[in-house]
Simulated assay, not measured.
Amino acid sequence: MKRILVVGGGLIGARHVDAVRAHPGCDLAGLVDPDPDCMNDGSVTRFMDMTDAPDDIDGAIIATPTHLHSAHGIYAASRGWHMLIEKPVAGDIAGAQALKQAVVKAGVQSLVGHHRRYHRRVARLKELIAGGALGEVVTVSLIWAMRKPDGYFQGNWRTAGGSPVMINLVHDIDILRHVIGEIDRCVTLPGRSLRGTDRIESGAVAIAFENGATGTISFADTAPSPWGFEAGIGENPNIGTTHQDMMWITGTKGALSFPSMTQWQGIDWSQPATARDLSDPGDETVPLDRQLDHFLDVMDGRAVPLIDVADAARTLSVALDIEAQLSTGSGEQRYG
C-alpha cells in the first residue's frame, strides 16, 4: 500500500482524494489545504501545510493553483516524495526548470497530470497515426468552446489569471504534441473581451509542427457549444457530455475525426469519401484512475513516466508563448 498525500482540495484535488480512497493499492495519508472549510466533514485527515505532514509518505499529488506547483513540488522532492503534479507543471519556465533540478537531485520520480494521455481513445489515436493509418499528417483542426459560469471566476485566483489557455488549451496543446509531433512555432489572434476584463477569453492559434504538418485551434470560454474534449469524451462530471467530434486530422491516406474515431478515405475527389469506424471498445477506465495506476507503477520503478516534469515543460513553453502573444498582440499583421 502506497501512502499518498493530496495537496490542494479544489475541484480536481477532491477528485484525486476520491480516486486515492477508492484505489486498492493506496492509503490516503491526508489532505493539505489551508482553508478550514475545505472537505471538513471529518472523513479526511487534514493538514494546514505540507510541513505538517508525517514522514511516512510515499507520494504526493499536488493539485494547488499553478503558481504554487514549483514550490510545492520542490518541497515534496526535499522530503523524498514521488510526485504527481497537476497541469500545467509550473507557472513559468524558470519554475519548471527549478522543479526539474530538484527532482533529479532528490532522485524521486515525477509525473504531470496531463491525464488526457491516459484516455483509451487518445492512445488509439496515437497508435493509428504512428502506424501510418493516415499516411503523412497534413493538417489538424481543433475546437474548444464552452461558456463557463460567471461564478467560476468570482472570488478566486481565476478572476485575473483564469485564462483558458493555461487552464484548458494546455491540455489540447499537450495532446497535439503527443499524437502529431513537436510544435515548431505558433501565431495567434486574440478574441474580444465579453466579460469586461483584461483576461484572455477567446482566440485563434495557427500552429506549425516540426514534421511539416500545420494546425489550428479555435477556443472560447464565453460561447456555449457541443465542441470540446471534455464534452466529446464525457470525462468530466462537471461538464455536460455531447459525444460530438472536436478534432479533425487530415493525412495523405485519409482523414480522421476525434473522438468518434471515424476514418475517412477516398482517392477520387469526384466521389464522396467513405467512413470507417476505428474505435476500439477496450478499457474504459476513468483516465484519472488509470493515471493513478501509472503513478503507482512509476513509484515502484515498473514504468517510465508517460509525461514527466521535463516533457511537461515543453507543453508549458508552447502554452506560455501562445498566452504571451494573445496578451500583447505580438507578431500580428494588420491589413487595411
Score class of each variant (00 low, 15 high):
I217R: 08
M166C: 00
M166D: 09
F219I: 11
R195E: 06
P224K: 09
I200P: 02
T197V: 03
I207P: 09
E182L: 11
A220T: 15
A213Q: 04
V179S: 05
P224S: 14
R192V: 15
G215V: 07
E201Y: 06
E182M: 08
G191P: 05
I167M: 10
G228L: 03
F219L: 02
A220K: 10
E230P: 00
E230S: 14
V179F: 04
G212S: 01
D184P: 00
I173F: 14
N236Y: 02
S193A: 15
L176F: 08
I173V: 15
G181A: 09
P226W: 09
V165Q: 08
L169Y: 07
E201D: 03
I217F: 06
S202R: 09
P237F: 10
R185V: 09
M166E: 04
P237E: 11
D174R: 02
R199L: 07
L169T: 03
H171W: 13
A208E: 13
G234L: 05
G234P: 00
F229V: 01
I183M: 13
A206Y: 13
I217M: 15
R185S: 14
V187N: 07
I183A: 09
G234W: 02
C186R: 07
G232T: 06
D174V: 01
H171R: 13
G203H: 12
S193H: 15
L189G: 07
E230G: 06
G232Y: 07
I233Q: 05
I200D: 07
